[in-house]
């Protein structure tokens, strides 16, 4: 048994734009579970967008400078610490920027000339960029995680979805299994869940493709949702806000496009950990997903309030209601959520 009382593991934290809002549940559940695992994440000061896959499509040097500004900010915040990104796209960009700057002296020099215009500098190799799943499994590990479990996810069939970016060359989180990683499978196993075979686990969710070509974007989503449904998964577990957005928020549009009726909820791995640790769904931001997770969670005895958050809530919508749901303005979920973050 490893000593469970250890000094807090401290990290620099790069939330990324998605975790500020659309994936706030990921941020919330990461912080809530980190507390239980004695991990401390300190957001780096005044970070900027990593550019996703867009900036690099139009600008080479500027996109590296944009990313490197964050690496420079991380060094300024607390240089010695690992920089942890929960978003796979941010993780890839930060890691790749450092990697290319190390390998290409000319690129490093030009990026630094650009950074100098903003009074910054970055020495390639000085920040160790890691994905949240990696630090949870490598630095804490299954045994210590299992020790926190008070509500095993028994009987819940989960499809572990890694997405593409964290399992790629030189960027992979699971060094031993580049094409078929297992660490998320292992993590779900130690929470007590039944992990289903999911051959498409490192396939791409389509990134921004729903905005470019419906035929291509929806097809990539369909394959993954169908894959999970074929193995009778109760839900898909994800490690990236882009994957969650595509599989959850676009699942309805995908169903309409293909005239299918899949219903596979998509939750973050941190939410699954939190549930197994006995935390309440509210503390984990559960309920913000568009594909209702309640039927799946009922299997482990987790009761969720009515789907609409906020005091009083909106009247419950009928299942077959074709009218458009009316938005609730920020005083409700948005207002309170903002306070939780700080």
């Amino acid at each position: 048994m490893p000593e469970l009382i250890r000094p807090k593991l401290a990290y620099n934290y790069f939330p990324g734009c998605s975790l500020e809002r659309n994936a706030e549940a990921y941020h919330k559940s990461s912080m809530a579970t980190a507390e239980r695992l004695s991990m401390r994440f300190e957001e780096i000061d005044d970070w900027n967008c990593c550019g996703a896959t867009e900036y690099i499509s139009l600008q080479m040097l500027a996109s590296y400078a944009l990313i490197a500004r964050n690496l420079a900010q991380a060094v300024k915040s607390n240089g010695g610490r690992d920089l942890v990104a929960p978003c796979s796209a941010c993780y890839l960009n930060l890691k790749k920027c450092d990697k290319h700057m190390r390998a290409d002296a000319v690129l490093a020099e030009r990026v630094n000339s650009a950074l100098a215009a903003g009074g910054l500098a970055y020495q390639p190799g000085s920040v160790h960029v890691r994905h949240l799943l990696d630090v949870v499994m490598e630095d804490v590990g299954c045994e210590a995680i299992a020790a926190q479990v008070t509500r095993p996810l028994k009987g819940l069939r989960v499809a572990p979805y890694y997405g593409c970016l964290i399992s790629r060359p030189g960027l992979r989180v699971d060094e031993h299994n580049p094409e078929y990683p297992m660490i998320l499978d292992d993590l779900m196993g130690c929470l007590g869940a039944q992990v289903v075979d999911f051959p498409l686990k490192t396939h791409c969710c389509g990134g921004h493709m729903t905005q470019i070509s419906e035929a291509t974007g929806f097809e990539l989503i369909r394959r993954l949702v169908k894959g999970a449904a074929d193995y009778q998964a109760d839900l898909i577990v994800t490690v990236c806000p882009m994957c969650q957005l595509n599989l959850d928020a676009f699942q309805g549009a995908m169903n309409r496009y293909f005239k299918t009726a899949y219903h596979v909820p998509v939750l973050y791995f941190t939410q699954m950990m939190g549930l197994a640790f006995g935390l309440s769904p509210e503390e984990l931001g559960i309920g913000a997903e568009l594909v209702d997770a309640r039927p799946a969670l009922a299997k482990i005895g987790v009761e969720l309030p009515e789907p609409v958050a906020g005091e009083g809530g909106a009247p419950k919508r009928r299942k077959d209601d074709k009218s458009l749901p009316m938005p609730k303005m920020p005083a409700g979920p948005a207002g309170t959520a903002e306070e939780v973050r700080r």
Binding site: E20, R21, N22, A23, E24, A249, F250, G252, A253, R256, G287, A288, E289, L290, V308, A309, A314, L324, P325, M326, P327, K328, P330, G332, P333, A334, A337
Partner: peptide, 18 residues
């Protein structure tokens, strides 16, 4: 129109910043 449902869902769930 096709994704209006989704957009409003995101707003309702507090997942869209204004």
């Amino acid at each position: 129109l096709k994704i209006a449902d989704m957009g409003l869902g995101m707003v309702t769930k507090g997942r869209m910043a204004f």
